[in-house]
């Protein structure tokens, strides 16, 4: 067992775990942060994407103990007030960009740093940036619209107000 300390959404956590515990399982089972979803556990689906020191990474492809000394942001860290969502979350809501919602946290955590680096992306760039996240409801069109809306671009197929 290894004792380590990491910061998640600004809060410090010290826990003692087995080295083989994945960061994704640590977040869900040890910290109760179940917004991070676990799909394929081989890095393909993107549902478990979190921010490690501000960069999007797969939490299923890291061991929890490797987070020692790092700052993690999960989807819970985007907003703690349902009436005051993160602008990207609000855009997802406005554009109906989720159906079952399983892929949504991973997409949000991938797109927050993407939009920070690409404030005015075109549609092709958005679609390429989304290639690391599966939506098996296949509602990609609405997701693209939501990201465009968050970027301040009027989506071509925007949901009517």
């Amino acid at each position: 067992m290894i004792t380590f300390t990491t910061t998640i959404n600004g809060k410090s956590y010290t826990r003692t775990v087995e080295a083989r515990l994945l960061l994704s399982d640590f977040l869900r089972h040890e910290c109760g942060l179940t917004g991070t979803h676990v799909g394929c556990e081989q890095g393909a689906c993107g549902a478990c994407t979190i921010l490690l020191d501000g960069q999007a990474v797969r939490s299923c492809l890291m061991f929890a103990v490797q987070a020692e000394g790092h700052a993690i942001t999960t989807v819970e860290g985007l907003s703690d007030d349902p009436k005051n969502l993160h602008p990207l979350q609000q855009a997802f809501r406005d554009e109906h960009a989720l159906q079952c919602g399983f892929c949504t946290p991973g997409i949000l955590m991938s797109m927050v740093p993407f939009l920070a680096e690409n404030p005015t992306p075109d549609e092709a760039t958005i679609r390429e940036a989304l290639s690391g996240n599966y939506c098996r409801c296949t509602g990609y069109q609405h997701i693209v619209c939501a990201i465009q809306r968050a970027a301040g671009v009027k989506p071509k197929n925007a949901h009517p107000e």
């Binding site: 890095g43 993107g46 490690l52 999007a56 990474v57 797969r58 890291m62 991938s110 940036a129 690391g132």
Partner: peptide, 9 residues
């Protein structure tokens, strides 16, 4: 090579 999330790591 893979996706941005993979290339970050």
């Amino acid at each position: 090579i893979a996706h941005p999330q993979i290339r970050n790591r």
